[in-house]
């Protein structure tokens, strides 16, 4: 059922049946290291290229998620997946062998939200019993595509974020579990004209603020109605901007806001500057850290808001701005 201007409140909320996270070495050494399902110490994941490594991560994450729920790939009706690479090639090559009918998505680092929204909508509408939502990012492939070759001698600015090598897969379906998706708020593109791709937190914060405000208004809730409001990868710079923007809207989320990009790395020890980013960041943290807390009932209801900076190398070179987008997913313990 539509709710407010941009949201949907499900009459029959689909469940997050299972989920899985696969990450690389650096993420495994981070504060959440022990919570991931799989940590690969070899960043190539046994493959020959960064791109193939990313595909393998997606494949492993999907297999783990389906395995945990004892669901065969034949039982999954549709797959919603995406990554950061051109034409979403990591997803296409990663999930090909499952033979699941699929939709390839691009929402930059917000793709996990986009995939979860579409998967839960499809289940709620009765178009299938199980849907798979999967996203990934890889430091090597992202750095190579968007910035510099890895052995190039550049200094990263303090506002730069570290692309997470990781993937998260979520099986959304009708089978009862302890977490359900009760609503979604689809974000719109918000562009404050910033052009600095090395400061993505600042590019995405306005979109996050917009979506969070919209979600609260659409559902008639206060920030306190959520145990946590969890943004995807705003990082340290983005978070402080988000707080200022929300204060401008007279909404205070300081108490219960956390950011996946800030949690996945130890800023002091791992030298990641403003925090983690990438499609794999929000997805792997949601799967490894957020969902278990919801399952145990430690948190009753959270708003998951993965954020994306929508840019391409071409648009950046041509001097275009970096617009942001953020999708809100309401997850509840049950």
């Amino acid at each position: 059922m539509t709710q407010g201007l941009q949201s949907i409140a499900f009459e029959q909320s689909p469940y997050v049946v299972s989920s899985a996270s696969v990450v690389g070495k650096k993420e495994g050494e981070g504060p959440l290291g022990k919570m991931f399902d799989m940590v690969e110490t070899e960043n190539l994941f046994g493959e020959d290229t960064w791109e193939a490594a990313e595909s393998t991560m997606q494949k492993e994450a999907c297999l783990l998620a389906m395995g945990k729920a004892h669901i065969d790939k034949e039982d999954v009706r549709f797959l919603f997946g995406g990554d950061l690479l051109r034409q979403g090639i990591a997803t296409s090559l990663g999930v090909e062998q499952f033979g699941i009918p699929m939709f390839g998505l691009f929402g930059a680092c917000s793709t996990s939200g986009e995939a979860l929204a579409l998967a839960s909508m499809s289940v709620a509408a009765g178009y299938g019993d199980y849907m798979l939502a999967v996203t990934s990012s890889h430091f090597g492939s992202a750095e190579k595509e968007f910035r510099f070759p890895l052995s190039y001698a550049n200094q990263r600015p303090l506002s730069a974020q570290w692309t997470v090598t990781g993937s998260g897969a979520f099986l959304v379906g009708k089978k009862r579990s302890h977490v359900r998706i009760t609503g979604i708020t689809v974000g719109k593109i918000v562009d404050f004209g910033l052009k600095d791709s090395q400061n993505m937190g600042a590019c995405m914060a306005p979109a996050a603020a917009d979506t969070i405000e919209r979600n609260l208004k659409d559902f008639g809730r206060e920030p306190d109605d959520y145990s946590r409001i969890i943004t995807g990868d705003l990082g340290y710079v983005g978070q402080s901007i988000l707080f200022d923007l929300m204060r401008g809207k007279e909404i205070d989320i300081k108490k219960n806001h956390i950011d996946c990009g800030m949690m996945i790395f130890d800023q002091n020890k791992q030298d990641t500057h403003a925090g983690g980013s990438g499609c794999g960041c929000a997805a792997s943290v949601l799967s490894s850290y957020v969902l278990p807390k919801l399952e145990r009932g430690e948190w009753k209801r959270v708003l998951f808001v993965p954020t994306g900076a929508l840019m391409s190398t071409v648009s950046f070179n041509e001097g275009a701005s970096v617009p942001g987008i953020a999708h809100g997913i309401v997850l509840e313990h049950c």
Binding site: L158, S159, F192, G193, L194, A202, P206, D244
Partner: peptide, 25 residues
């Protein structure tokens, strides 16, 4: 207005964003 807003935001972000310590670097 939009242009002004964008400039205001850019300046604000500049203030908010930490930079390397220049003398040290």
């Amino acid at each position: 207005d939009r242009k002004k807003q964008q400039e205001a935001y850019e300046n604000y972000v500049k203030r908010k964003t930490p930079v390397h310590n220049l003398p040290a670097n």
